[in-house]
Design a protein around this nucleic acid. Structure first.
Length: 486
RNA sequence: GCCCCCAUCGUCUAGAGGCCUAGGACAGUAGCCUUUCAAGCUACCGACAUGGAUUCGAAUUCCAUUGGGGGCACCA
């Protein structure tokens, strides 16, 4: 075995992966990239019942979106394939047979009903639930009798009844488990599929995985895995159990916590760079001050020593802030490109041209935290239906009448203005406020609402320049009419 | 119920015995800038869970308590 770092992300296609899974994948990916190693994607489709159509493609798309490329696995191949566990069943079956033959495992004929009843009884009597090792010492005759009944057995690991299993975790340090607390877990199911425990050990060994990075929830099954490696005569990889990612109520992430799958974040208008940056900081830190960090810096600096042991709560607010940071860093062209799908979704054929879009978007780039906010921030550039309350036209210390008069004068001057660029507009409008004995805010506020229907917009002159003279004049006239009707 | 683990501002975290009257960031509050909204800048608010022990000295070590999390499937 070489000392190349080989890590893997091994999702099971049973639904959409939440951000906690992806964070684990990210750490495995960063670790591999940092060490110029190999990142492997392996599909753990051993649960036929819970398999969900399309979820694998969804997972792959999520990884691609974040730019987490894999060197071996679905779509790219590799020398250790196939990378889909349902295509490697014979390997697990061979391993299970070897374990039985060497006395490390045994056939169990207990029915699911018996196991369920057993568990219910244990819970009722406040006993720790677990298999009672009923089939552990079956005689050959007893086994033959069960076989004759036509029962297909499962294979269970024969856990030592005493002693301790210890291992070194790269993050948690030395971990020790009492063997007596570990059950005789099923390695091979009666349908011929392996459980996670067996499949993991067999594949991580076969694929020469050097470091297993996975979530903390697996730490208690690590001893079983260690014993299985040993029973099979394999050298175990290094383990690094990652802290959990929790929802705002400190419980495991689930649907109630709002968006939890990566692609949902894409739909909500998050940028992959922001997402990656944010996820990396969930359980890892560079130093005492760095928040915004590029992908390359992440790769360059990632290390297991700086992974924390404490579970992290997913903080949407900070993600949103970070997304704003990344949006502002985009070039105007890149920003426009990212916004187009969202604009098309909202305005369809009302988008006159890309040139126009490129004039509009710089006005809101530093105001948007999410790409999904862009349509609402720019609607008046694309639609002439403003639908606002006429009262919004009236600035502080003004009346409908004074506002109407001010707008009428402004309209008159705008009609005659030689140009309609921001500078020309400002040069005319500022003195006009003074002339009308109004504060700039009063006049500008009325104009702002008149041309946009909003009270919060980008700077007035720039906005008007992009809207164009004709549109502004029509809208100001509409505002005057609205005021007259009050 | 049993086993394992964790514990610094509301949240993400820095901190590996004296650099800590605990640093940064998000959020919140106030102000500056300003035609509004953002952005930016400034300030404020705000934490070492509790109790013991070790030590000249503890957020940092040890023990207990409390709190939280994870696991205890023919799921992964």
């Amino acid at each position: 075995m070489s000392d190349t770092v080989r890590t893997r992300f091994a999702p099971s296609p049973t639904g959409y992966p939440h951000v906690g899974n992806i964070r684990s994948a990210l750490f495995a990916w960063l670790f591999a990239r940092h060490h110029n190693g190999v990142f492997i994607l392996r599909v753990e489709d051993t649960d036929v019942e819970r398999s969900v159509e399309g979820s694998l493609e969804y997972i792959l798309e999520g990884l691609r979106w974040l730019g987490m490329d894999w060197d071996e696995g679905p779509g790219v191949g590799g020398n250790y394939g196939p990378y889909v566990q349902s295509q490697r069943l014979h390997l697990y079956q061979d391993a299970a047979r070897r374990l039985v033959e060497s006395g490390h495992a045994y056939y169990c004929y207990c029915s699911p009903e018996r196991l369920e009843a057993l568990r219910a009884e244990q819970i009722k009597r406040k006993m720790p639930p677990g298999y009672d090792r009923h089939c552990r010492n079956l005689t050959d005759e007893q086994r033959k009798a069960k076989e004759a009944e036509g029962i297909t057995p499962v294979v269970r690991f024969k856990t030592p009844l005493a002693g301790k299993t210890r291992f070194h975790d790269e993050i948690w340090g030395d971990v020790v488990f009492e063997n007596s607390h570990i059950e005789d877990l099923v390695l091979l199911k009666s349908d011929g599929y392996p459980t996670y425990h067996l499949a993991n050990v067999v594949d991580d060994h076969a694929m020469e995985i050097s470091h297993v990075l996975r979530a903390e929830e697996y730490i208690s099954s690590a001893p079983l895995h260690l014993m299985t490696y040993e029973a099979l005569g394999y050298t175990p990889p290094k383990f690094a159990h990652l802290p959990m990612v929790l929802g705002h109520d400190r419980s495991k992430l689930s649907k109630r916590h709002g968006a939890t799958s990566v692609l949902e974040f894409r739909e909500q208008g998050y940028l992959p760079e922001a997402m990656l940056n944010f996820l990396a900081l969930l359980g890892w830190s560079l130093d005492d001050k760095t928040d915004v960090i590029t992908r390359d810096e992440l790769i360059k600096n990632f290390s297991l020593e700086r992974v924390s042991k404490t579970a992290a709560i997913f903080n949407h607010e900070k993600l949103k802030w970070m997304n704003g940071v990344y949006i502002r860093k985009l070039t105007p062209e890149a920003f426009a490109q990212m916004c187009v799908p969202f604009l098309e979704g909202a305005f369809h054929e009302n988008i006159p041209s890309m040139d126009y879009v490129l004039e509009v978007l710089p006005l809101v780039q530093e105001r948007a935290k999410l790409l999904t906010e862009v349509p609402e921030l720019t609607h008046y550039f694309f639609s002439d239906q403003l639908n606002y309350d006429a009262k919004l036209l009236i600035s502080k210390d003004m009346t409908a009448e004074s506002t109407r008069k001010a707008l009428a004068v402004a309209k008159e001057r705008l009609e005659k203005l030689p140009g309609f660029d921001a500078q020309t507009l400002e040069a005319m409008l500022r003195p006009l406020a003074e002339e009308l004995k109004l504060k700039t805010g009063q006049l500008f506020g009325a104009l702002r609402t008149a041309v946009s229907g909003e009270t919060a917009t980008p700077p007035l002159f720039q906005m008007m320049a992009v809207l164009g003279r004709e549109r502004c004049l029509i809208r100001i006239q509409e505002a005057i009419d609205k005021l007259a009707a009050l």
